[in-house]
Amino acid sequence: MELIINSTIIILFILGLYGLLTQRNIIKLAICFNIMEASILIFFLTVGYKPEGSYPIIRPEVDSYVQPLPQALALTAIVIGASTTALMLAFAIKLYKRYHTLDIDKLRRLRG
């Protein structure tokens, strides 16, 4: 089980990175960034996970809980990721209005 999760994390991360390096469409770049981020969020969730653990609200009849802190960290990371994605899409809108294309190869003006 652990092996499957770990390999999922690594495959998702590499997939996202590969997409960022090869894709030319701005929207696809934003999606690839989100795939990378998803892999790290899965990693955060696996850190605090226990197979028999209950949700982290203290009750007398339960003695094993999943750790709440990684979930809180993952939430913060989601918020930050959302704002980064929002900024990327805002850039996409501005660039599209100016150049009428989403292909980053066609808007390369900065060289050397």
């Binding site: 701005i26 900024l87 850039f91 980053i104 003006r109 900065l110």
Partner: peptide
């Protein structure tokens, strides 16, 4: 815009 996007990625 172009430099900002590059930096952002």
């Amino acid at each position: 815009l172009e430099a900002g996007f590059k930096y952002l990625v």
